[in-house]
Amino acid sequence: MSAPVYNFAYLDEQTKRMIRRAILKAIAIPGYQVPFASREMPMPYGWGTGGVQVTASILGPEDVLKVIDQGSDDTTNAVSIRKFFTKTAGVRTTTSTLEATVIQTRHRIPETPLSETQVLVYQVPIPEPLRFLEPRETETRRMHALSEYGLMHVKLYEDIARHGHIATTYAYPVKVDERYVMDPSPIPKFDNPKLSDCPALQLFGAGREKRIYAIPPYTRVVSLDFEDHPFQPYRHDAQCELCGAADSYLDEVITDDRGSRMFVCSDTDYCETRRAMGYAAPARNSDAEPARD
């Protein structure tokens, strides 16, 4: 007999049912964190155990899976999770954003716009946006129940008082469908506008903290701000030095020990696709960097 070593997609069926019920409630209450009985996974906390459990529960044999870590398909976390599902579910994997039906992500939203047939699964370290302001779960839960989000605005105001602008650059808090304040996971605030009115379903899984939450498609998601200090996405003022993109989120890469650096797209699939289409590095300004002394 060729009995499978694992159940399809690793998790047992009872666990999947429990997670699936949590996902349905999460979709019905956009932005609300549904507690779930997170399982131990064969990887440490912080490596995407929440995202992996969500992916394992939604994945079917027809799905095509893409996994990114900080936008990249080829870093350790992304490669291991892809291998994990190749082994336990036998699903096809891809690095192409367009081809994928399920995309698990750590800390980025792909540059290529998502479609209605896709699901984006986020790995979340700390799902509670109020946690660093109020450590007690009983209190944060009450604050969400009462929509008592003044404290978050105080935090953003203190940013302005201290730095002159809102200095939060990632995990920037958002309000979902005018009700729940939500942590979008540590995506750069550059990605925040993509959360809103997205055609794809967005699911968030926090394994250590045992929470699942969701943003249904075409849901209004607003980054918190003030009238006189409106939300502003941040991007390095540069072009990608591989594909010349002037609209993508850039990583700064140190290239030697004398301070040389280059900016490249954080989304590797976006960058590769552009280069395949013939886009190339912009013509370098004469001795642009380093030119300090």
């Binding site: 399809f8 999947k16 349905l24 529960s57 939604i58």
Partner: peptide
């Protein structure tokens, strides 16, 4: 194939809840 059947049913319901 209970695992596949319940996955297919769930995906239909997930899509229904999402839209």
């Amino acid at each position: 194939d209970p695992a596949f059947a319940s996955q297919a049913a769930f995906r239909a319901l997930m899509e229904a809840f999402a839209r």
